[in-house]
Nucleic acid binder design. Structure first.
Length: 461
DNA sequence: GTTCCTTTGAAGATT
DNA sequence: AATCTTCAAAGGAAC
């Protein structure tokens, strides 16, 4: 026996319980140090024998299950490799790949973050040389922006690097558009405080560009020798005071083709189904008609479906997610709950309304139809919230007011038309209804705004 | 549990 | 006729 073996302490045997991977690492390191210390070199079979002796009975049992080729049997490295394989954590390749292929980009997750996580997950998938192309394919598959996906699919010889560059370019473009929009909104604000005087004002069509201005008294208007920003006009057969509004820069954005392309919303056509046991609305995605796969089924229709408008349908659909800055609405086929409330609303938010309902011949409380701005507000609130999360609705409404005023009359027109349609429908549905029914009978005597110094002056005169 | 906040627009109420 | 008030929506805050 070698003398050296006597004075060097033998490593402890290989523990095959607990963290086997760690145990193996520690054992291997100690064993190789031991071999070095005792000066064991060259003879492969001796090394194997020593390894199995020191590793202990359990390790020998494991060794006996190994399948060696004739060449491998006497190779120390081959035995080590078999132990490595045995002690490595068991990874389920199929499962790891399943996880990888189901990893989609999260909302509010940047391309960089998404690709980074794909890289991490790919490590346990054993893709080998295919790794890069697998990540590329998953990026194309899982990217949130549908428009971006189309761009990537069109690209010939797409590499992972190229795909990432395309994604980042679009991400930056979107950011720039947002910044641009925000800047313009701010500009609009400033200009509303100090509007420029339009020389063409005399021939200006108030119906198109003016807005009601209740605050101004006739004597303050240009027609009465007052402020030239204001003029007298007629609208809806009522003479009112108007203030000129400028054409906004934001309008130009509506013609931006890229912006149009990235809109991904479900629109609902004005052709409600008349089927008795289920009803479906013809839908359209980005200008393309789609089969009614977003079928609104299971609804127990008590009311005439022809009274449903696209707007009321949309209101009652579930916002599924935000894609490309647009809310995607939908209702999965087979939903058992009717998506539309057919019964008149039962929850009243104020005592006044309750009182009205009790006093007015048991008539159900019917709300007034929404105006154009309210419709715009309902549609746009999710976007404003998505851009700047905030739990102060009053503030959100202020922003929505700014955005609304920043729209051109042409951009606003669809909301006016929709409100008009809803108002007519409302009148047909509730011919007995008038705003008077909902008007507070116990009107509060209270000022909404504090008294102005001008009024204070008027009172003293 | 109700009202306030905050916006615009429609329409009724009040001056 | 001009001006003022209410209420449609929203949901958290403040009574």
């Amino acid at each position: 026996m070698n003398n050296k073996m006597d004075c060097v302490r033998q490593p402890e045997e290989l523990k095959l319980t607990g963290n086997i991977e760690e145990n193996w690492k520690a054992f291997k390191q100690r064993f190789e140090l031991y071999m070095l210390a005792i000066g064991l070199e060259g003879d492969e079979r001796r090394k194997i024998a020593l390894l199995l002796t020191i590793a202990g009975r359990g390790a020998l049992d494991v060794y006996n299950t190994f399948d060696f080729t004739e060449e491998e049997r006497d190779k120390y490295d081959a035995v080590i490799a078999k132990f490595e394989q045995y002690c490595a954590p068991k990874k389920n390749e199929t499962f790891e790949r399943f996880v990888f292929r189901n990893r989609m980009q999260d909302e509010a997750e940047s391309i960089e973050q998404y690709v980074s996580d794909l890289r991490l997950k790919s490590l346990s998938c054993n893709f080998g040389t295919q790794c890069e192309s697998m990540i590329r394919d998953q990026l194309v598959n899982g990217v949130l922006d549908n428009n971006l996906r189309m761009h990537l699919l069109k690209e010939p010889d797409l590499t992972l690097d190229k795909a990432i560059k395309i994604c980042q370019a679009l991400e930056n473009a979107k950011l720039q558009i947002r910044t641009f929009l925000n800047k313009n909104t701010a500009k609009v604000d400033t200009r509303r405080e100090k509007p420029k005087i339009n020389e063409q004002y005399g021939t200006h069509d108030n119906k198109e560009y003016g807005r009601y201005c209740y605050q101004q008294t006739p004597k303050q208007c240009s027609s009465f020798g007052g402020d030239s920003r204001y003029s007298w006009g007629e609208r809806d057969s009522t003479k009112r005071c108007f203030v000129k509004e400028e054409v906004q820069l934001v309008e130009e954005l509506s013609d931006n083709e890229d912006e149009k392309d990235s809109v991904y919303v479900i629109t609902i056509k004005d052709e409600p189904s008349t089927s008795e046991d289920e009803w479906a609305a013809p839908m359209n995605v980005n200008g393309t008609d789609i089969p009614p796969n977003l079928k609104l089924s299971g609804a127990q229709c008590v009311q005439d479906l022809s009274s449903l408008t696209p707007q009321s349908l949309k209101q009652n659909l579930t916002p599924l997610r935000i894609a490309n800055g647009e809310v995607v609405y939908g209702m999965l086929a087979g939903t058992s709950k009717p998506p539309v409330e057919f019964a008149p609303p039962q929850n009243f938010s104020s005592q006044k309304k309750k009182r009205n309902c009790q006093n007015n011949d048991q008539q159900p409380y019917v709300k007034k139809p929404p105006n154009a701005f309210i419709l715009y507000m309902q549609e746009q609130r999710p976007y404003v919230l998505a851009e700047q999360p905030c739990n102060d609705n009053a503030r959100v409404n202020t922003i929505l007011g700014q955005k609304w005023r920043a729209l051109s009359r042409r951009e606003q027109s669809k909301y006016y038309e929709e409100a008009d349609k809803l108002r007519k429908l409302h009148a047909e549905k509730y011919p007995w209804w008038s705003a008077r029914e909902n008007y507070g009978k116990m009107k509060r005597i209270r000022r909404k705004y504090p008294i102005t110094s001008e009024e204070e002056y008027d009172q003293t005169v």
